[in-house]
Design a binder for these strands. Structure first.
Lengths: 232, 232
DNA sequence: CTTGAATTAGATTGATCGTTCCACTTGCCA
DNA sequence: TGGCAAGTGGAACGATCAATCTAATTCAAG
């Protein structure tokens, strides 16, 4: 009797190995050994290694909302949709921290590796990014007139994804989280400036210089790594 | 008699193949065939496939300044250092265009693929990004008080790199240049807003709403793709 | 020309690649 | 309990992998 269903165990192990080593660098034999499974089982559930990769990507897509997007909302200390955006980036930052800045976004990594080949996989990556961006856009739209009316919410959402992926890439290359923080920090400043400008437009703000932080973190005792993370 | 020195031809072909297919997906036999060379020659100049990759990365590093950074300055229609930043992004955009949105930054792609393995290669990637960011930071610093004094130039430079890499990744995943443009467009808006804020601080600007474009493109006839590229 | 090193040709290595095939066991429904 | 499909174990396949080796060739200096 197995701890988990074989298919599920193969998927979990393959996802982890693909993320750590990449797709081409991970041999089928390695997957079989790590999952404690013989090739007959693997090829019973998956027609090929590429098919396995597609299944892994589908899994990532299925888990995007419950494990990433919804979690970002839960992690937010306020219900400010703008904070949800940065809370989402915080989810990735946490993964970066616990892995020693070696783990990034598995989908982003594979996006660049498999590139044009394997159209089926590329479609899944495309949809993954699409869902990601749509959620961020919804949050931005939920911010209403706190952002300038003329602002293109979709473009900014794509911008946020770019900052996230690019920041993860830099931190992984230098094995330092500072680069991710710097990129995200600049993004936060930009958004804060947009909010200030919007308030200025509305006549609420006399002096545009006093761009206030998005979240009023008046609690004098910042929790664990919260301090470092906020210290932009 | 060979058209080019064997070593140089191997490097060129390998760089192209690594960029198109990735490192692990490119077999040595493929490189040999494409370069019209036998294995004896390759292993005379390079001790291993990994050594060849390191040489390719070194080449990218050597060509970063003359082929990318300096070229961005040449492409700029003005001497505004802030425009140089976006001209640099334009260099990558051009590569994206001529390849049908399949080619990005070769260094960025390999950065995510080889990841932690091959420390020698990782060091080169790290240095590549470091030089890149330093140049952008210098441009930002050259902008002087056109940017707010409190602005962290290094952080913003890293932010620019993140936007570039993340934008390239999205465009490659969706095989559409729109996503790159959206990310860069938001970046441009942010920088324009920073400039406006700086002018406001200096008392030059009465109304912060009239954030002017960075480049005064008063010519009514935008060149070829210049129009599309500027149409954010 | 001679000489010796630099370079190239090309067959060949053992290892590993992804995949197939078939015998076997297990679980489930009749 | 019989039967049949689902699932598993494990040997084996041809192809390709990166890398090695020696012999042949080219090249430059004396």
């Amino acid at each position: 009797m197995m701890a988990k269903h074989t298919k599920e165990r193969i998927l979990t192990v393959a996802a982890q190995l693909f993320e750590e080593q990449g797709y081409h660098a991970t041999g089928v034999a390695t997957i079989l050994r790590a999952a404690g499974v013989k090739s007959g089982s693997l090829y019973h559930f998956f027609s090929s290694k590429e098919d396995l990769l597609a299944a892994v990507m589908q899994r990532h897509l299925d888990q995007l909302r419950p494990m990433i997007l919804d979690r970002a909302v839960q992690d937010s200390v306020t219900e400010d949709p703008l904070e949800h955006v940065f809370s989402l980036l915080g989810v990735y930052r946490r993964g970066l921290l616990i892995s020693g800045s070696t783990r990034g976004c598995p989908v982003g990594n594979l996006a660049l590796e498999v590139g044009g080949a394997m159209p089926r996989v590329r479609k899944l990556i495309e949809e993954y990014f699409s869902v990601w961006v749509s959620q961020v856009r919804d949050w931005l739209e939920a911010a209403g007139d706190r952002l300038p009316a003329s602002l293109d919410r979709t473009a900014l959402a794509r911008h946020v994804l770019a900052v996230a992926q690019g920041g993860l890439m830099q931190s992984r290359a230098a094995e330092s989280i500072e680069l991710f923080d710097a990129s995200v920090g600049s993004l936060r400043s930009s958004v804060e400036l947009l909010v200030a400008r919007s308030r200025y437009e509305a006549g609420e703000l006399r002096d545009v210089l006093v761009a206030e932080p998005l979240t009023s973190d008046e609690s004098g005792a910042p929790g664990e790594d919260q301090f470092e993370w906020r210290a932009w």
